[in-house]
Amino acid sequence: METLITILVGFLVMIAVYLLLSRNLIRVILGTAVLSHAAHLLLMTMGGLKKGSAPLLGEDAESYTDALPQALILTAIVISFAVTAFLLVLAYRTYKKTGTDNLQQLRGFEDE
């Protein structure tokens, strides 16, 4: 199971890199979003998937699942949400101001 998820993470990173390298601003932002999902999935996988019961004292189980990766992912998801929202607004403002969302044309404004 872990191997499968790791391969999936690899696929997501591949898609993210493709999107990040494109010229369209929205695609770049989507790329960062996909990349963040890949990172979250990797965090989850690294903690080990489905090994025991819920980590509560009442559960009399042989082994417990590690709860830490989930806490980490929760934090990371909130952060990635905030950053993506900010980037989208930034892209919109930039488009309004410059009239283009093509990164090739957004370079080299030497002066105001």
Binding site: A39, L43, T45, M46, G47, P69, L72
Partner: peptide, 9 residues
Amino acid sequence: LMGIAYLYG
């Protein structure tokens, strides 16, 4: 984040 994931793993 990926570095952290690998390190934790």
